[in-house]
Amino acid sequence: MPWALETENLTRSFGAVKAVDGVCLRVPARCICGFLGPNGSGKTTTLRLILGLLRPDQGHVTVAGVRVSRFARQRSIYQSIGALVESPSLYPHLTGRENLEVARRLLGVNAKRIAEVLAEVGLADDSFKPVRQYSLGMRQRLALALALLASPTLLVLDEPANGLDPAGVLELRDLLRHLVSERGATVILSSHMLYEVEQVADHVAILAHGRLLFQGGLGELRSRAGHALQVRVNRPEPALASLLASGWRSERMDGGLLRVHLANAEEAALVNAHLIAQGFAVSRLVEERPALEALFLESLAGATA
């Protein structure tokens, strides 16, 4: 599988504290990878190691198959990475356009890109205002424009939705999907807004205490949590007794619903057939999809245990 980003045994300590401990991250190409973890889990340190802002004590980073040197700033690698790390850092005395121009001169990209990225993030009309007059959301958009300036194939975004209004969050979501589907980019999205990550990510990595607890597809994470089915029947109590008698772990839910825990998703058909055979009228049969938040907390609880 072609990995857009690979880290091998990435380790970094600050004094006695191991901030990142042997992280082996594999991010597939052309996907949005949600990078999750509680505060102090080592997310930002990992991102800073990936971007070459910190040197690892051990391990290395490989971007699109090219191993990153600890000593040289390889232009070919970093030209293809766009980054927004922590809060947007902008020059408040310069206009939005001038802020982009500073980065453009360093990147050596075509001047046309400034107008393009300003349009992409919806700042074209405000680009001649000094950044000190920008709202938090506008600053966030401009920081995103900076990350997009070199048309990166790998985009590392740390809390990009901070300060964005609901419309801005929706636009960000669409923009990220567009970057992946149309331009073939890979996005690493670190965020505390798990709902937002859930909306866009197809790959997830969970970090706690500097260690990688899980990485894989969102579906894989869900399947780890087990399968459950919500069932509405005409006579819930006898139906519950019948399911329990047949060996299905089941429970009563609010609103006359039953929850049936399954070994796999295909078992749903068997539950349905069983209830109909027993003379129950099934009016609703829905597979329960655990929210990312629940899966995330479950992973953390597992790590703590």
Binding site: G52, L53, I81, S89, L106, L107, L146
Partner: peptide
């Protein structure tokens, strides 16, 4: 002031 170093050093330019 705004810790621009991360932004600057993430660019493909030697420090």
């Amino acid at each position: 002031r705004e810790h621009h170093w991360d932004q600057l050093f993430a660019l493909p330019v030697r420090r």
